[in-house]
């Protein structure tokens, strides 16, 4: 089994994952794999279980059965904070801001390995000042790149929805992740800006080699950027392939027409 080796071709493997909420079967045996260094999309109509799958991968829910393998490690049932430290970082569909804190603090909080975060060392500034300054510089760089530096001093509950999405992304980037799970990173944003965000993500993917799995609805926007696409419907993966294959796949056309 090469799924247990770090050198596997796949950074993330989801094997036959099932999850139900009372009577609702949200995930009905999902299988998918994300190639190392790829930018993979996950599409599907509303309620098809995409977000639930993210929640299972990221440790928010334990799957009823099935496995999640990340970078050669079986992370099934790990708590979210442990998964984060392993290098898998997610964002939320509905942005979850630390709402009484400023945007800047939101981003700073996401940094890894700040010695000032301990009860024992935090009263002594000397110990953590240097690292804190480094983290702040990194935060400023990321925020500048994402064009949210001008709202850095605003309360994170007082910025636009699109900006919140970017703050989520900025938080995700603070830890130098191996892989990002992005839940509709460009939802509610006009197509021009959406293209800009995806272009930016593609750059990140190319330059830093961060693997990505991205949920998005709008196929037309996705196609120029992603390598591979999975389609979910009613808790199952019903189609997969390159963007080109997917557009031509009658099953996918059916699902989307059926929705309309």
């Amino acid at each position: 089994m090469n799924s247990n080796s770090r050198n596997s071709n796949y950074i993330l493997e989801v094997i036959d994952v099932r999850k139900r909420f009372g009577g609702i079967i949200a995930l009905d045996g999902v299988n998918l794999k994300v190639k190392r260094g790829s930018m993979t999309a996950l599409i599907g109509p509303n309620g098809s279980g995409k977000t639930t799958l993210f929640n299972v991968i990221a440790g928010v829910y334990k799957p009823d059965s099935g496995k999640v393998i990340f970078d050669g490690t079986d992370i099934t049932g790990w708590p979210p904070e442990k998964i984060y430290h392993r290098g898998l970082v997610r964002t939320f569909q509905v942005p979850r801001m630390f709402k009484a804190m400023t945007v800047f603090e939101n981003v700073l909080t996401a940094a890894k390995g700040n010695p000032g975060e301990r009860f024992s060392t935090s009263p002594l500034r000397k110990i953590w000042k240097a690292i804190e300054l480094k983290i702040a510089e990194k935060a400023v760089d990321i925020m500048e790149l994402l064009k949210i530096l001008h709202v850095a001093r605003n309360l994170s509950s007082a910025i636009s929805g699109g900006q919140m999405k970017l703050v989520e992304l900025a938080r995700g980037l603070m830890s130098d992740p191996i892989m990002l799970l992005l839940d509709e990173p460009a939802a509610g944003v006009n197509p021009t800006l959406a293209h800009e965000i995806f272009g930016f993500l593609r750059n990140l993917n190319k330059e830093q080699g961060i693997s990505m799995l991205i949920i998005e609805h709008r196929l037309d926007i996705l196609f120029d950027y992603v390598d591979y696409v999975y389609v979910m419907h009613r808790g199952k993966v019903v189609a997969e392939g390159t963007p080109k294959e997917i557009v031509e796949n009658p099953v996918v056309v059916d699902i989307y027409l059926g929705e309309a």
Binding site: A58, R96, A100, E105, N114
Partner: peptide, 19 residues
């Protein structure tokens, strides 16, 4: 201190803090 940020983050949204 950075600790204060973490505590407030937990207060504001524990799941996000875990994430």
């Amino acid at each position: 201190s950075p600790l204060g940020r973490v505590l407030k983050a937990i207060r504001d949204d524990e799941l996000a803090a875990k994430s």
